[in-house]
């Protein structure tokens, strides 16, 4: 780092700071301030100190929604960190017609959620394809209620989310895989390493920064999820698939309790900050044992 003036980094950052400052941080700051008020979306409100936080503590729907979101995150993050990597490796092969396959793998990302819900409805409903197949091969005796059993509904929502996210994170992995020097694979092959061995000893260590990126992104997106739950189940039955953002949103837009919605967002923000830090420390420890 020779000959760099102190302000050089800031020159690089200036356009970003300007745009993010005006259109993200200022509104976020504004909204965060509302967390300590009883602001009504249209009416304004007054400072109420920690009342909102106290209310969150005793709001069982908030905790239910947080639990659902965390459960969902725990299912989705490992799946969406690993499966897209495998898909990317498959899609990176130099074979005929690969562009076509890549496009198709990517297509669920741009599919409208309503259509995805329609098709998954055909799969998951009690007389749907999945139950039909499972009954045929004798795994189940009577139809499983994938979309109305409170203990399964979140898993069904997660499956659809994973399905829709595969192509998205595949793209990041494909880009990441190309940064792995080919000669490393050749060297490993010369050493007699089989494909699985090569995967573990070459791909995984070198793709780890990308896995961290994808893991973080999936976690952030998972904790924010609501479209899938909303379209598939409307949050039901009896709030079994009501996610945190669904709940926040309802309070802010239907209940018009902008202050309370902001307070819940603040809690979400802190939870995520904490999880990010844990993840960072964990990866750092993994990286330098």
């Amino acid at each position: 780092m020779i000959g760099r003036r102190w302000y050089t980094p800031w020159l690089f950052l200036a356009p970003s700071l300007l745009l993010l400052g005006v259109f993200l941080w200022w509104p976020v700051l504004n909204t965060t301030a509302l967390a300590f008020t009883d602001t009504h979306t249209l009416r304004g409100g007054g400072f109420t100190g920690l009342d909102n936080l106290r209310r969150i503590m005793s709001d069982s729907f908030f905790w239910n929604a947080l639990r659902n979101s965390l459960f969902f995150t725990i299912i989705v993050v490992p799946a969406l960190t690993v499966l897209p990597l495998l898909l990317a490796i498959l899609a990176s092969a130099k074979l005929k017609g690969m562009t076509f396959f890549r496009v198709v793998f990517f297509s669920p990302v741009v599919a409208s959620m309503v259509v995805a819900a329609l098709i998954w409805g055909w799969m998951l409903r009690s007389d749907g394809l999945l139950n039909f197949v499972l009954e045929r091969i004798g795994i189940i005796n009577e139809p499983v209620r994938w979309l109305s059993d409170p203990s399964l509904v979140m898993i069904s929502v997660a499956v659809v989310t994973i399905w829709k996210g595969l192509g998205y994170y595949m793209v990041i992995y494909i880009a990441g895989l190309q940064n792995i020097p080919k000669d490393l694979y050749e060297a490993a092959e010369l050493d007699g390493a089989g494909p699985i061995r090569r995967f573990w000893s070459v791909t995984v260590p070198l793709i780890r920064p990308t896995m961290f990126l994808v893991g973080t992104l999936t976690a952030l997106n998972a904790i924010k999820v609501f479209t899938e739950a909303f379209v598939l189940t409307g949050g039901g039955p009896n709030r079994a698939s009501e996610t945190l953002v669904l709940y926040i949103y309802q309070r802010g837009f239907s209940g018009l309790e902008l202050g309370y919605a902001s307070a819940m967002s603040l809690v979400l923000f802190v939870v995520v900050l904490g999880l990010t830090l844990i993840a960072q420390i964990w990866t750092r420890r993994r990286a330098n044992p």
């Binding site: 409903r125 139809p143 509904v153 598939l232 189940t233 409307g234 039901g236 698939s241």
Partner: peptide
């Protein structure tokens, strides 16, 4: 239908 519990108008 068993699935109707969580379904809406759509």
């Amino acid at each position: 239908s068993p699935d109707a519990v969580t379904e809406g108008h759509r």
